[in-house]
Amino acid sequence: MSLLRKQHSVLPGFGLSLGFTLAYLGLIVLVPLSAAFLKTAGMSWADFVAAAASPRVLAAYRLSFLASLVAASVNAFFGLIVAWVLVRYAFPGKRIVDALIDLPFALPTAVAGIALTAIYAKNGWLGQWLEPHGVKIAFTEIGVFVALTFIGLPFVVRTLQPVLEELQPEIEEAAVSLGANRWQTIARVLLPELFPALLTGFALSFARALGEYGSVVFISGNMPMRTEIVPLLIITKLEQYDYRGATAIAVVMLTASFGLLLLINLIQKWSRRHHRV
């Protein structure tokens, strides 16, 4: 141990770099974040519940959680197929398709929002064909789901791709030589290997969808109790100068996000241990 310390202290700059990192992180991230928790700490419990659990807020939680859950599930299913196709098969234009996966990370959310609305609104690119058949997407819960699917799309693909690439062909060959058919190989050998990464991608996609604002506000129609997501409700409260109400809802969301972050870290730790064995 003492040897290790000595070896590490050869390089200068520990105090400077750690000090700067902590100061920057403290000023930019931790102090402002603590402001949200301290603001609600000054509220009575009854006030907090009234602000963070009124029927309108509960309806928003419900929509945000359900739409995020469905969007993350759809992304997990299709993301698995996309990652599989990109790693295992060859087709023309594959590199372009691979680069395009990150579009939702690079495209500003407001741009995605108005583009999706232009597609699914009543007189939109697809909307004009769908609405006569009674399928309404823009300004309904389905619109919220479409936007959340768009912004969560890269997470599952990008967490699965490296794991799929690392997968040894030997384990599949071993399964086949032991008499498994292709379906059994996939279900019993491949999927258990991929599961931690799939779960991580799902959780990341879900967490991102929960907090998403820009792409949803345009397509959702923002009707209270029906298509109002939680981040929008926070903005609405802020515009009414109801800072306590906005902060109370924000604290609930922050707690949920930090819980998810912790869960994702645990999944990754667990999968790392699982792989080492």
Binding site: V29, A36, G211, P231, L238, Y243, F258, L261
Partner: peptide, 24 residues
Amino acid sequence: LLITLIDLPFAVSPVISGLIYVLV
């Protein structure tokens, strides 16, 4: 812990990221 703290802003909704600066 430090690595987790660095990742923290990714877990925060953009709207809440703005809100906390309004609170300060």
